[in-house]
């Protein structure tokens, strides 16, 4: 993953993200150790402690069926962590040009070919 996503201020906070191997969807490491599609569930690390957490999660990525584990710097808001870059905000919320394609978007049932 692009190194620019790993820019972190020493004093800041970050969350850990990845893509699911099977479908590529974005997930966030939650406080309970599960991977959630919602950034609001993400565990927030200080940027001092996140490197060790990233190493651990990268090492177990295959077991967790994940790819591209990295850290995302966030600011804290009443609704949860908010990425500091536009890029990560779009990753967290879905493409801005399809408001319905949020992480909550439920895939339509497969339609059999005519």
């Amino acid at each position: 993953m692009d190194r620019r996503n790993n820019r972190r201020d020493a004093e800041g906070s970050s969350v850990i993200t990845a893509n699911r191997l099977l479908d590529g969807r974005i997930v966030w490491l939650a406080a309970d150790g599960q991977w959630s599609p919602h950034i609001r569930n993400a565990r927030v690390y200080s940027n001092v402690e996140i490197e060790d957490a990233l190493k651990e999660q990268t090492a177990s990525a295959q077991d967790n069926e994940l790819v591209g584990v990295y850290g995302v710097q966030v600011s804290l808001s009443p609704t949860g962590p908010v990425p500091v870059t536009s890029r990560e905000c779009i990753r967290a919320g879905g493409p801005s040009v399809h408001p319905d394609f949020t992480p909550e978007w439920q895939e339509r049932p497969a339609v059999s070919p005519a």
């Binding site: 993953m1 692009d2 536009s86 890029r87 779009i90 493409p95 801005s96 040009v97 399809h98």
Partner: peptide, 14 residues
């Protein structure tokens, strides 16, 4: 653009 592309810096579509 940034709505989909991992390389993009900015959104092209909006």
């Amino acid at each position: 653009g940034l709505d989909y592309c991992a390389l993009a810096n900015a959104r092209s579509i909006p």
